[in-house]
Amino acid sequence: MKASLSLRAGLLSVLLLILLVGIWHLSTATSPVSGRPAVSGAVDAEYAALMGNGPAAATDKKVDGFPTPLQFLHVAADKLADPFYDHGPNDKGVGIQLAHSLGRVALGYLIALAVAVPLGFVIGMSPLMYRALDPFIQVLKPISPLAWMPIALYTIKDSSVSGIFVIFICSIWPMLINTAFGVAGVRKDWLNVARTLEVSPLRKAFQVILPAAAPTIITGMRISMGIAWLVIVAAEMLIGGTGIGYFVWNEWNNLSLANVIFAVLLIGLVGMFLDLMFAQLQKKVTYAE
């Protein structure tokens, strides 16, 4: 029964995909014909050539507006065939761009992790700290990552580090709050047992509280990773240079929607992959009470 459910779900997904691509195909197949009213008047050969419609331009594959699924596949195949080329500082393959983005995310995220988990422990174990720091957390948490950008650029004076800072500042909150929440919510019985056994505070933290709070902490980490990946694309569109966000911006500058769509799908896939990693981790630390 369970197998058949997942089979049916899979089938439905495939059907939906076909449906979506079909709609895409139908809605884009007609647009190029309707899109050239300007030429219909005095069509002379030079004008057509200048507009990219001449006989010479036929090989140049001019794409106006939204690409068809076929055009998109063509672009995607092109990009995937050589993902690691490097034609100067402003033109690198998608593989290199993704690596840059992942590197930034990893760095900002790890710093956030290193700050959030110990701090969350302190906040979770001390009601005083919890109350004292709560207003700060509540105010800083909802700030949009891009709102930090001008401040970061101005004070840090380095766009690459600013990007990492923005990742840090945005991914710290879910981890901090979840850690504090998980640590504060450890069952009193277990803490009492630890106390009766006269366990040292360090041992108590690592062998009682940490395993008990781990599922909540990992959930926080998973949310943070999602946010970090969301933020990096936006941040890189702003700071430019390298990264998948810059790639999107650069292709948008060229109005090349096929490339933009390709990058968007890639961003989605990588995001999914990152999330799956944390899902696996979460499975490992979950326990039944």
């Binding site: 500082p89 101005y154 380095d158 430019g240 240079g241």
Partner: peptide, 20 residues
């Protein structure tokens, strides 16, 4: 020389001011 493609004029200004 490394030519750095920049996303907007405000950013050109900021990158010049911060010496990047």
């Amino acid at each position: 020389v490394t030519l750095h493609k920049t996303a907007g004029w405000a950013l050109v200004r900021d990158h010049m001011l911060n010496g990047e």
